[in-house]
Amino acid sequence: MSALRPRTNILDKPLSRGKNEVSQGIFALLFSEIVQYCQSRSYTVPDLQTKLHDMGQDVGARIIDLYFVRERNSKRETKLTQMLLFIKTTLWKNLFGKEAEKLEHANDDERTYYIIEKESIVNTFISVPKDKGSLNCASFVAGIVEAVLTHCGFPCKVSAHWHKGTTYMVKFEDYVITRDKQLEDK
C-alpha cells in the first residue's frame, strides 16, 4: 500500500515558488474587467482612479498579511529605507515578476519618495479613450503600495503619475520620518 501524500494547494506553496503561474494574457483580461467594473460606477477620471486605488488597497492589505505570515513568520521591517527596498524588490517581483526600476528620495521634501516603473503592466493592455486621456490605471498599484506601507506601520498616501513611465509618489506622515531618524540614531 502506498503512503498517502498530503494534498497541497496553491495557498500552501511559498510565494517565491509561485512565479509565472498566471499568464500575462489572463492578468490583462482580469485587470481589464476590473477597470470596466470601476468605470461603470464612475462619472469622472479622478473618480475612476479613486475606485481603482481603493480596490488596490484591498488587495495590498491581503498581500501583506499573506506575505509576512507565510514567508517571514510575521517579522516586518521597522526601518523606512528597508521597507521601501522590500516594496521595490520583493513585492514587485512577487506581483509583476520583476523589480521596479528606481527608488528615489525627493530633493525638496524628506517625506516624499518615488518608485519609478518604466512600463507598468497595468497600463500595458489598457487603451484609454481620448475623453479619458489623463487616466492612469496604475492607481490600482498605488493603492496596493499604500496599503502595504500603512499596514506595516508607515502611514502614507501613494498616487500614480505619468513621469518617466509611471511614477508612484509616496508621501509619508511626518512622524514616520521622525521615528525613522530615532531608530537610526540607536
Rank of each mutant, 00 (worst) to 15 (best):
S32Y: 13
A28I: 04
Q49S: 13
S74I: 14
D185F: 05
Q182I: 12
K51C: 00
K75A: 12
I126T: 11
S134G: 09
L149E: 12
M55L: 15
R7I: 06
H105D: 00
I64S: 05
Y175I: 00
Q24P: 02
W92N: 05
D185M: 07
A160F: 00
D47A: 07
Q49H: 09
K98W: 11
Y113W: 12
I63G: 02
G153S: 04
R76S: 02
Q57W: 03
R41V: 14
K130N: 04
K19S: 07
I10F: 12
N107S: 02
E110S: 14
A61D: 12
L91I: 02
W92Y: 11
T178W: 00
Q24L: 12
G18Q: 13
K118W: 03
T150F: 03
V158E: 00
A160M: 01
G153I: 07
D180F: 10
V158H: 03
V145S: 00
G153Q: 02
G153M: 11
L11V: 10
P155Y: 05
S32G: 12
T150C: 01
Y168H: 12
Y113V: 07
A28E: 09
K102A: 15
Q39K: 15
P129T: 00
P14G: 04
G18I: 06
E173G: 02
Y43K: 14
E33R: 13
G143M: 03
L135V: 05
V141L: 08
Y175K: 10
G165Y: 05
R41P: 10
F86W: 15
K102D: 15
D174I: 02
G97Y: 04
S32F: 08
K186V: 02
G60L: 13
E101A: 12
K186E: 08
K75S: 03
K181I: 09
L135D: 08
E77S: 08
V122F: 05
L48R: 14
E101S: 09
S42F: 03
I121Q: 06
N9P: 01
W162E: 15
S32V: 00
G25H: 11
D54L: 11
T44M: 08
K164I: 04
A138Q: 04
L48Y: 08
L66Y: 05
L91P: 01
L48M: 11
L80C: 06
L11G: 07
T78R: 04
K132C: 08
T81C: 09
I34V: 11
V128K: 13
T178V: 07
R7G: 11
C137R: 03
F154D: 01
H163M: 15
L66S: 06
G133Y: 03
S16K: 00
C156S: 10
H161A: 14
F68H: 15
R179D: 01
L85S: 14
L29K: 14
